[in-house]
Design a binder for these strands. Sequence first.
DNA 1: CTGAAAGCGCTTACAG
DNA 2: CTGAAAGCGCTTACAG
Lengths: 335, 335
Amino acid sequence: MDRRPTIVDVARQAGVSKSTVSLVLQNSALVKEETRQQVRQAMADIGYVYNRAAATLRSANAGLIGLVINDLRNPFFTEFATSLQMALSAAGYATVLANTDEDPDLQGQVVSAMLEHGVSALIIAPTYGQEDATFGAISRAGIPALQVLRKVVPEVDRFPFAAPDYLAGGRLAARHLLDLGARRIAFLGGLEGREVTYQRMSGYLAVLAAAGLPPLVLPGRPGRAFGREAARLLARSHPDVDAVICFNDLVALGLLSGCAEIGRRVGPDLKIVGFDDIEDCAQVFPGLTSVRCDIACFGQRMAETMLRWLRDGCAPPPETLTPVELIARGSTLSR
Amino acid sequence: MDRRPTIVDVARQAGVSKSTVSLVLQNSALVKEETRQQVRQAMADIGYVYNRAAATLRSANAGLIGLVINDLRNPFFTEFATSLQMALSAAGYATVLANTDEDPDLQGQVVSAMLEHGVSALIIAPTYGQEDATFGAISRAGIPALQVLRKVVPEVDRFPFAAPDYLAGGRLAARHLLDLGARRIAFLGGLEGREVTYQRMSGYLAVLAAAGLPPLVLPGRPGRAFGREAARLLARSHPDVDAVICFNDLVALGLLSGCAEIGRRVGPDLKIVGFDDIEDCAQVFPGLTSVRCDIACFGQRMAETMLRWLRDGCAPPPETLTPVELIARGSTLSR
DNA sequence: CTGAAAGCGCTTACAG
DNA sequence: CTGAAAGCGCTTACAG
């Protein structure tokens, strides 16, 4: 047997027609149990492998879902992608994954490639820029698509949006610090002009305004390197700052390292809150207080949402915000 | 236009036959430049999207490569998967990715699913267990497949193996510590019975044996949590240990946290070397000395290797070990 | 250089 | 419940 066996080979082996084999493949209730057994046995005997390309061509369902991620190296997104992929896999869908590295051109390319491959749906943690090119192409393809974690196009009826409730998270973080007696609270990291930065910052701004305290916003790249440098910057240029809310955990973890480096005590001297609650937060010392988005759960939830949309035609609500909670750890203890 | 346009529609629009359109799609030199332009224009005009499923059915090349990873949450593997995917994407291949979470059953499942999807090739960072089920299926499908980072089946002619030179890495780490005056060096982490654990340990064992020093091996799960606990274990049960080589960076970073927690000075009191050199190593304080595997480069290299195999039929050598180097940082400084 | 025809391996109505 | 036939959108020889 040098070529791959087809349903015709299976049919011959089992002594039925190829239509019957096809029905068995689809778990149709039309086929008698005994026949089903025979067919399955025949498949096993000749080593049949289902050819999805052929099935796709006829029925226009590839069983393939595209997952596009703006920064897959960030553990927050890794966890998201992993939990989503595993949930889809359990439901019989394979995941085509691409990292766009915050590059809009790359994003356009990979989305086109996925559409050519006939993905049945797309879940996209988008990057900013060239939104029309990317989402226009998806729109023309007419497949279900979810924008997650960042809203980059306003058409949430066509492209429903879901994310953790960043605003509430920022509020929780700010209140936590106020309750602990902090009086000069900064917001650190996140690129200026990005909607997601503003989202994560706005709860903080609201709480400070309500308390009659002035905000201090120090934008920066959302990675460890910036956080680490910021430790020096804070000590030198803003010695009055007694607490910091970071754009994400990477910035916060960098800041933690930076404080260790310059010998500033995290907790008593400077309280630090991260955002996302990636796994590292619980493992570093002192532990990093963070806003838990439960991204693994969020990933599973997005998988279910998409499966429901695909299977029952039941589109999700235009906007979904999932709850967040504050996890207090050593980085905000006073001693 | 409610159905997706096909090459027939493009042909009609451009006033040529559908064969010609197909040739244009394949960038065939047979088509006159002027005709090519017309056809491309027609595609753009009617919003044509290439249907790869149809092409695959006829020509048996899906332009899809499967990537199977045993632990995608570990930044080492994330970086590997990301760099590989991006290199494949640049070459026009889409990547189907799955995390197996070290579960052999899951691995069998996702590999089957990928074969059904007609992946042209497979790159697999395998888990231990049920090797025959997984690799038997790949073998029957007859597609090129690479086992990377771990060798789990001995048939390296059929499944070429590539990984960083772990043995050399262990040797570098041990020599580095001996040169710095360490006299009681432990090897920490890695599950017993796994080939990869032995690989990473063997350079250490060889160097210690040559120096006439007794080894101390403390196996454990390859994550931060184990490393952190190990700080206590070492201080209590093995106070004479003055240096540690860790199975991977996660263990080492956990150990770093654990030492901070119990107030043990990393460097002067205890020297620590990690393995992999993930990005965090340079960002923590003190910086973590580690064995650099340059996994991003390794990922790109594997992409090229596979592309050459696929395009030129040029199979890689049965075993490839890529060089590693020791990156010294604060965690092995004496003060 | 271009066109007409067959065929890849399935699914889908439609008869029986 | 099962079978014969058409067709999904391409590619691939084969003529011209």
